[in-house]
């Protein structure tokens, strides 16, 4: 019997897998956070903008939304390399994934802002509250509650989409599992395990979402 090139999966691989899990979590949280903050700002600007400016901004956001993420990642990382300004895979992936998230979040937040009726805003202004006070205390909290389920939905898909950042070399869950598969030739077990991990990461988010939704029902 010849010496096998492959070594089976063992407990020693736990640390490696865990790195992948944490890296997936890490880049997802960064993208959800930055994407939400930027998306809130862009969504707000869109909700108060004139049609013409909105058309222009909408076109830009449509590009981000419709060009497959994997192409954006490869294009961007190649481009920053070509102009002699290479970024590490994490930074590169975070930038693109955050922008991609922002494009979706901006629509979520825009819908949130627009869900608050003029008469609600007028009621607030008539109490002597200023424009920004009305945004801060009335429009934002009511709007955010309305679109919270969609926010959870976008966040969940960001966790899954983060797997694509593997193509530019970021060592997240999918890439670690890919390397393990090459070494062990046990794709079934490993992919099942990885699938389970994505579920374990995502489930609390959707559970938390449903819990908050019930709590905030208005």
């Amino acid at each position: 019997m010849g010496l096998s090139l492959f070594t089976p999966l063992s407990w020693n691989d736990t640390g490696f897998i865990l790195t992948g899990v944490l890296n997936t979590l890490y880049i997802s949280i960064v993208a959800i956070f930055l994407g939400s903050v930027l998306g809130m700002v862009v969504g707000f600007i869109r909700s108060i903008s004139k049609q013409s400016f909105n058309l222009f901004m909408g076109a830009f956001l449509d590009i981000l939304r419709t060009v497959p993420l994997i192409i954006q990642l490869v294009l961007f990382s190649t481009y920053v390399g070509v102009i002699g300004w290479p970024l590490n895979p994490f930074t590169c992936g975070s930038i693109i994934l955050s922008l991609y998230t922002m494009a979706f979040m901006s629509e979520v937040f825009r819908a949130g802002f627009e869900s608050v009726s003029d008469s609600m805003r007028i009621a607030s202004r008539s109490l002597g509250m200023g424009y920004w006070q009305t945004i801060r205390y009335i429009v934002l909290p009511i709007g955010m509650r309305t679109v919270f389920p969609s926010w959870i939905g976008v966040s969940l898909s960001v966790v899954k989409d983060s797997a694509l950042v593997s193509v530019i070399g970021y060592m997240e869950l999918l890439r670690t599992s890919d390397q393990l598969i090459t070494r062990t030739q046990q794709p079934l077990e490993i992919l099942l395990g990885v699938g389970l991990f994505y579920f374990i990461i995502s489930y609390p988010l959707s559970f938390f979402g449903r819990h908050m939704e019930r709590k905030m029902a208005i």
Partner: peptide, 14 residues
């Protein structure tokens, strides 16, 4: 100075 009440009461639901 001018308190206003509307036909639609517009309570703040949150």
């Amino acid at each position: 100075k001018l308190g206003m009440v509307f036909q639609q009461w517009n309570s703040f639901p949150h």
